[in-house]
Design a protein around this nucleic acid. Structure first.
Lengths: 237, 237
DNA sequence: GAGTGGTCTAGACCACCTG
DNA sequence: AGGTGGTCTAGACCACTCG
């Protein structure tokens, strides 16, 4: 269960960036210096820095060093970092309202991704949450998790109110990638009420399939987003 | 101008995947075998495979090998690979209609991203294209490129009809990342006509800022997408 | 047990930036 | 000239999968 060195270095630096110990524009210690600090090699340090760069926390400049990048004013909710991660990266006050606590049920039929028989027979854990930014309702999120080797998951409250955090701590499951489909649709009466919009207003409709470090274990979400005030952002590298 | 080894290996494998020499589900040669084939080391090969994995071409499985992943039925247009790359990865027939050939002009004011004085004073090269999938109009794209050290760019036709390809070949400029904002809006009469929709229909509205390998050189785009038939997809890793 | 990818070491040379 | 990140070598040990 020991974390690899490069992930420790990664977490260490990320927390210092999120915690404003390194601020926007600051230069991180050089790769050689970080190797010395963590009693490691440049290769290992570079693996950590590469992840930070990929996720938009730093920029690297040859001959200069690694620079901490600015926080984004848009909501980085199209990336696969969980909502809780985004909260620490934006200037907006974000919070979550649980509309349906995790409960065991059958998969909807039809479902928006095709399921293999193992997933299908296991049933799913369903939960529904409303995300708010500065007290505006911005996102309605329905999540479906296959009920595979997740003992007592529905009986406990979420840790830090974060699904990903709970899966990590209770079951050592980490999200490693995200496949998503995005559409613009008109919202129906039900969604309109929850997102404080008018029926027929345009919203983002997103289907997601999260990949995890557990072979064959995926998490599915359907999102409806109000983008009147806040755009959904994403960063690719 | 020599490409690094890992990029050569990357391009080599990617072309074989796109060219169906390795097909969906196929196992790539192992890392050790690829090192021997390219007279290189595992580290270098892993750098190439890592990029392929990041972009969704392969999955790696410890103890098994690297497996070529399926083509996507949705349009991977929310990722930062150019449109031309997406064309090779989908089963749909894609093509592009040039609505406004590249021409030099002033920046729109206001512009959707803040420009620095260097960009502002240089003016911009503007072009406008309509993207089609299976003869359906799916995306209207307006692109703005700062006119910095791009001699004679507007006077030549695009190579392979691809902007990114032209920038690469004529100016050694490569896109390395993408920052984007996505919203759902109602389309106006003008856009509706071009995308064959009705005024007021919901569409995706996207602002993009592409980062390049040239320090401080960015490319900007504004997109309007019709998602009635085709969702816009993206893959993160 | 043989082969795979994941992690790591201890170096090297290069292009680039800054003082 | 000295420090930085980019690329690369030639190994090593590990956890995992498969026959």
């Amino acid at each position: 269960m020991a974390l690899p060195q490069y992930k420790i270095i990664y977490e260490n630096l990320k927390n210092q960036i999120i915690g404003d110990i390194y601020q926007e524009g600051d230069l991180l210690p050089s790769e050689n210096e970080l190797s010395r600090l963590h009693d490691s090699t440049r290769t290992t340090v570079r693996q950590a820095l590469g992840d930070l760069q990929k996720e938009g926390y730093i920029e690297k400049h040859r001959g200069k060093g690694s620079i901490v990048t600015s926080q984004k004013s848009t909501l980085g909710l199209l990336s696969f970092r969980g909502f809780s991660e985004v909260v620490g990266q934006t200037e907006h006050i974000m919070n979550t309202e649980m509309l349906q606590k995790p409960r065991l049920q059958k998969w909807p039929d039809p479902f928006f991704y095709s399921l293999d028989p193992l997933e299908q027979n296991a049933g799913c854990i369903f939960l529904k949450r409303l995300r708010k930014a500065d007290d505006d309702s911005v996102m309605l999120e329905s999540t479906y998790i296959p009920n595979l080797r997740l003992t007592r998951f529905t009986s406990k409250p979420l840790i830090n109110n974060s699904l990903f955090r709970s899966l990590h701590i209770l079951h050592q499951i980490d999200v490693v990638n995200l496949d998503q489909e995005v559409r613009a649709i008109r919202c129906d009466k039900e969604i309109a009420r929850k997102l404080k919009l008018k029926e027929g207003d345009p919203i983002l409709h997103i289907y997601r399939k999260y990949g995890t470090n557990r072979e064959g274990f995926y998490i599915y979400s359907e999102l409806h987003c109000n983008t009147e005030k806040y755009a959904m952002g994403s960063f690719f590298k």
